[in-house]
Design a protein around this nucleic acid. Structure first.
Length: 217
DNA sequence: GGCCAGGACACCA
DNA sequence: TGGTGTCATGGC
């Protein structure tokens, strides 16, 4: 572990001890219909398929996860949580289904574009690169890293509002640059998908608990 | 009624 | 390059 930030690892161990593992290692059935990279369901990220992770990553932008769950629930109820269905359905119909997630007009347009790209990645049988994701309208760095880590098991540490808050609270780092956080975490931690998922999940749960405590004051 | 929540992008100086 | 406005719902 030479060269790695011991403090970040110690904080990880503390969170793990306090909250327990957020992500189990159990391999789930490969339930993707199409060819592609093997899909093992991540337990912490609530999704039944790779495409559901992709949809969740986009819909979660600047909104509460409960609103995302409602939108995804609507898609499931309409039997429309499927890339081909989303590509082919009318935009106004998609808007109605994802309305609870907020910014629904913008997200419906972007979701259709993302679903089209998803089909390309699946049909060629290889995961997207980060640059390919970033070239898609509505996919920024956080969304791209969430998709790579949770949908494709590619080690990119996800920097979200909770991660920034965690770094600030523990006086680790404070910056406006996304890449500053990325390089901090990825230099300090061993490059490991399970570790990245678990650490991010623990940070999110830490952030939610901190938020609840703050509101209770 | 106001604030916040697992962002991204366009526009302007 | 940095700041600001826009997109919008739902829970507390």
């Amino acid at each position: 572990m030479a060269g790695k930030d011991g403090r970040l690892l110690r904080l990880y161990e503390e969170l793990l001890e306090q909250s327990g593992p957020q992500e189990c290692n159990k391999a789930w059935p490969r339930n993707e219909k199409r060819a592609g990279v093997a899909w093992a369901k991540p337990c912490w990220w609530p999704a039944d398929s790779r495409f559901e992770v992709v949809v969740g990553a986009l819909l979660a932008q600047n909104t509460n996860w409960k609103n995302v769950e409602k939108a995804i629930g609507n898609l499931k109820d309409a039997d429309s949580l499927d890339a081909e269905r989303i590509v082919s359905m009318r935009k106004c119909s998609l808007e109605k289904l994802i309305r609870p997630s907020g910014f629904y007009r913008q997200k419906a347009k972007r979701l259709k574009t993302l679903a089209k790209s998803f089909l390309v990645f699946e049909s060629r049988g290889s995961p997207p690169s980060r640059d390919e994701l970033l070239a898609i309208d509505g996919v920024g760095k956080e969304t791209a890293d969430s998709i790579l880590l949770y949908a494709y098991d590619i080690p990119h540490f996800v920097i979200d509002a909770y991660t920034r808050r965690f770094c600030k609270c523990h006086s680790l780092l404070e910056s406006k640059e996304y890449d500053d956080y990325t390089s901090y975490f990825e230099k300090a931690l061993p490059r490991d998908v399970a570790l990245y998922k678990e650490y991010h999940a623990l940070i999110v749960e830490w952030g939610k608990a901190a938020g609840r405590m703050k509101r209770a004051d």
